[in-house]
Write a protein that binds this DNA or RNA. Structure first.
Lengths: 237, 237
DNA sequence: ATCTTGTTTTTTGTTGACAATTTTTTGCTT
DNA sequence: AAGCAAAAAATTGTCAACAAAAAACAAGAT
């Protein structure tokens, strides 16, 4: 009668979804080099399944921004030029700003408490450097997700999730992570979150939007700088 | 050697694409009621093709926001509640704001000339009411497209195009159109465009962003008001 | 030697049939 | 009659084979 009852999705998650997830992980972890072709037959054999589901998995990954499909020429692992990556960050910044504004305007009670906890952990992380860069990134990501949820704006949540699941991950999860490795960067991050929490608590939606946006723009600039020095992404073909 | 030469796409545009386009039009024009089920076999027969391409067409339409697919329960024409529609407009507003900012920052020469022409036409439209609401909407839409292009931000352009091609169209193109029917509304629109053009010409990116955003937010508010009075969209199930 | 042209091979696009799942119907029990 | 259970129908998911297109290759001409 309803669609997804208590029993849970123990049995039979859609096949293309499974393939897309697995392939997505492999792409994120750098096993599949950007620019390399993805041949349907090859993966059909690898996963012991027909070409149909693989085909659909490719479309799912295209929607998530991991692969690029040219109609009669097949799929390739997407290759971002730095400009596109920066652009994606800018988009994420304004969208996250909007989420912060709307979450503040709604002023639901649960948000500030949930945030406060994590913000405290971020500040400790910045001071004592007692957790890994990855853990720091996870907490910050959870905070963003929380704010997006409390904006009560479903399309916005969807888009932010999609953007977050995108190429950004490639660097956040890559070894070594590019962000949150230095103390100054963590301190900057913690400061932003402290101010953002304060603005939300005070119900100052405009200010919350500004800080939230600046937060991600700072992340963007840090990433650009890191990329320029580390010279990570190289265009392959 | 290249992918789409001068000869044009006379021969064989991808089949799922064709189906998706045609179906999309039918949905936009209200031939397919929101909430109604889309059965693969049915449309496969109607378009005289196999179920495969139809299946893929559904996914394309899902990505465009026209249909909703639940994994083992098929596809339905998507039904928007007014809240989601307003949310979509808000997203479009901040994204368009970003586009205006970046276009202004780039300050490419062609933009202001191209805009100026259309802005003049919009002002005349507001004064003399000499063109149809639809034509007014088309010109305004072209302006938005132009600014998005000149932002030189490919992901942003893509997202704006996708959002613009979404449910908003359902009302912009519906008979009668909900927007730009009254003189005051056209005057408001023309004023915004005049100010925006001025800001872009002056190179004031921050101001351009603010105006661009306000422009679409005004459109959003107008739509909400119109929906409340006309009571257009009704949720079916 | 390089570029062009025709041929072979590989890869994607499409189809119809079969399997698994969901929805509807039917018949029975309370 | 209302509610529940099992069977039937309809629908989506998957598969393997075929058709069309693209890519890779080879041979010949300039």
């Amino acid at each position: 009668m309803d669609e997804q009852t208590a029993s849970g999705p123990i049995c039979a998650l859609p096949l293309p979804q499974q393939i897309a997830d697995h392939l997505g992980h492999r792409i994120m972890h750098g096993e599949l080099v950007p620019g390399s072709r993805l041949k349907e037959e090859e993966f059909a054999e690898r996963y012991d399944v027909s070409r149909g589901p693989v085909r659909e998995a490719f479309r799912i990954l295209e929607r998530r921004g991991f692969v690029e499909i040219v109609p009669r020429h097949g799929a390739r692992v997407r290759v971002f030029d730095p400009a596109d990556l920066a652009a994606l960050f800018s988009i994420r910044a304004v969208l996250f700003g909007l989420a912060a504004r709307q979450a503040t305007e709604r002023a639901e009670p649960g948000l500030v408490e949930a945030l406060a906890l994590r913000v405290a952990r971020l500040r400790r992380s910045a001071e004592k450097m007692d957790i890994s860069p990855r853990e720091h990134a996870v907490i910050a990501g959870d905070n963003q997700h929380l704010i997006a949820r409390y904006s009560a704006n479903r399309p916005l949540l969807r888009m932010l999730e999609e953007l977050t699941g995108r190429a950004l991950w490639r660097m956040a999860w890559s070894d070594p992570p590019l962000d949150f490795t230095t103390r100054v960067r963590r301190q900057q991050s913690a400061r932003f979150w402290r101010d953002l929490l304060k603005a939300i608590k005070a119900g100052d939606a405009g200010r919350a939007e500004g800080i939230a946006r600046a937060l991600l723009e700072a992340s963007r600039d840090h990433m650009i700088a890191a990329m320029a020095s580390h010279r990570v992404l190289s265009a392959a073909e």
